[in-house]
Design a protein around this nucleic acid. Structure first.
Lengths: 361, 361
DNA sequence: TTGAAAGCGGTACCAA
DNA sequence: TTGGTACCGCTTTCAA
């Protein structure tokens, strides 16, 4: 015999009991299915409201018992960025334990190099949803279109691409990241000097955006600084080092550098070797253990932390909520980068040593 | 007849079937309950590992069908901070829909004024967990001790208090917030000038911490600035305005102000009235629509955003995960404040107008 | 149009 | 030490 429910929120059973109908009828009425007279439906809905009914999602989930597999396709390089991003995805999956969502990771060498191939090799179609860092938008567009046709949701992280054919995109606001760098460098370097942006690859949307933002902000907030042509390192340490050394030699008047990719080590090294550390103000991108020393010693004034962990976590949450609860997320989430300075650096260092790469989550 | 399970992750049924035992036995073995021979337990555990068994938390939750009520006790003032914080809690509850956690809000006038009374009036013991912004630690200590004895978890937000007798605490790192303000003001004001901290009430731990951090950072990173005695506004607009006006009159050499509470409007107004806007550099605390104009016009150089929404969300998540899954959260979460500058302000303005008070979540 | 009943994957209890 | 079974709240199917 079914026990009397003693308390707690009302369920369909309570509604049915109160009205003297069956739970089947209540279900049909609540979901607007056919097979219920208008009058009965009305009565059920009223009673539901009266009892303040909310469906028990746990029970619903158990009954439907859907389970999802998410495929994650991310580059290995730059590890200091993508490792925390993966960790964030894992953290999200852990927090949502019970949602029946499984995550499978696949890697390829570098942003924009081998992404499509990796997806093909590992049969991206087998997944119910995909998390992806698009390198060159054009290359992934084709896959996204196919995915859209199959109604398979894709979430972009780290960089954005064409707004169509994707469920959502999580990234730091790159135009404004560049803007912050320009505004701060303008304050740091009061006299008429030259500044340069060292970036990865301007074919990547994100990198181009940062440059645009930097230039725009410089023009309005720091017009006393002149911008040299941007340098593309293509994420090659050798190239970055060589280009920086040459730059320093050719421009003794250089006052500041904005490094808009996480690959800052070779640039910092080149500046140090040329005895210009501290004389050339540097704003770098992303935070990792080595960065701490550079900030501490004043070689780098600030790092713009792109919060990969949060990006990963949010990507997972957006995708899994879409799959499980069916609710569409924000189409485009733009995170504010964290500014890591000497005075607040310990917060980030501590987080790192505690196994979380960000002072949150 | 029970249908054959066709695929998906293995359950206790699959384990039982493979070994020819009953699901009851499997359950006992998996949970280390008594009533299972060592040999059977061994076999079950091995088979579980072999089938890569993970318990279906949805099913477990449904069966156990526990539901929790969380009591939230927060001040009404300052609304620009505590309203988003409440919104964050609601957002967390929404995201965790299905976890059977109900949230009940109770308010009292001001931080440290009426908190204990409100908790007594609304019978805090009736709740399974509590979220609280402790004003003066000493006053809430008593309740916390009682709660601890009843094994009732309490999570602090916005400010911290005695580390004992609480499950967790979520807040921005206030010492470092003060530190950031000092470092930036040191860069903004290059010559030997005076600076002042305008705070709420130094009896509140958090406010005292910001002052400490500011002083410490000033001494090491901006020794050219001299600190005047801190001003306490006690969150009274009139007092803040009057004190600021007097300060400006008495100290024509004042170069910078750090406002360490969200109540910055009267201070900004007083500076503007005395024709010193732009001449006195200001770093304020928290972001709300009016702040946008002040930053845009240059009256305020930067705002340290304390991310109330995130604090609320994290507080809910910590508490609900403890209640539902039983896992203890980080004892003390220290968020990094966001620095809102002219160049990245639009991000925060957009978030506000989109109904989220922070560029995340 | 409605009612009755079978599960979803666990937990817990009673009987063997 | 084991097996068997009711039940959590909902969805769905089949029968009335």
């Amino acid at each position: 015999m079914r026990k009397q429910k003693e308390s707690g929120p009302a369920g369909i059973r309570q509604i049915a009991e109160a009205l003297g109908v069956s739970i089947g009828t209540v279900d049909r009425a609540l979901h607007g299915r056919e097979g219920v007279s208008a009058k009965t439906r009305e009565r059920v809905l009223r009673q539901a409201k009266k009892l303040n009914y909310t469906p028990n999602l746990v029970a619903r989930n158990l009954k439907l018992n859907r389970h999802f597999r998410i495929g994650v396709f991310l580059p290995e390089q730059i590890a200091s960025f993508f490792d925390p991003l993966r960790a964030g995805i894992r953290a999200g999956a852990l927090a949502a334990a019970g949602a029946n969502v499984e995550v499978v990771f696949h890697s390829y060498p570098q942003l924009g190099q081998g992404d499509v191939e990796s997806m093909e090799t590992h049969r991206w179609r087998q997944f119910d949803g995909i998390i992806l860092a698009p390198g060159q938008p054009a290359k992934v567009t084709f896959i996204c279109q196919e995915a859209e046709e199959e109604n398979k949701p894709i979430v972009f992280v780290a960089t954005d691409a064409a707004r169509e054919n994707r469920l959502a995109s999580i990234a730091v606001e790159s135009v404004l990241s560049g803007g912050i760098a320009a505004e701060l460098l303008g304050r740091l370097v009061p006299d008429r000097r030259q500044v340069v942006v060292i970036t990865g690859d301007l074919k990547i949307q994100d990198h181009a955006d940062k440059l645009r933002g930097f230039a725009a902000s410089l023009a309005t907030l720091a017009p006393h600084l002149t911008m040299l042509p941007a340098i593309q390192s293509h994420e090659s340490a050798r190239d970055a080092h060589k280009a920086t050394s040459r730059l320093l030699k050719e421009h003794p008047d250089l006052g500041a550098i904005y490094i808009s990719t996480a690959n800052s080590a070779p640039v910092i090294a080149a500046v140090a070797e040329s005895q210009r550390a501290g004389k050339v103000q540097i704003i770098a991108t992303d935070f990792f253990p080595e960065m701490a020393q550079w900030i501490e010693s004043g070689q780098v004034f600030a790092a713009l932390h792109q919060r990969p962990f949060t990006q990963g976590r949010m990507a997972f949450e957006a995708l899994s909520r879409f799959l499980v609860q069916g609710c569409a997320p924000e189409r485009s989430v733009r995170l504010a980068p964290h500014l890591v300075l000497r005075s607040n650096m310990s917060l980030f260092v501590d987080a790192y040593s505690a196994g979380r790469p960000e002072p949150e989550f």
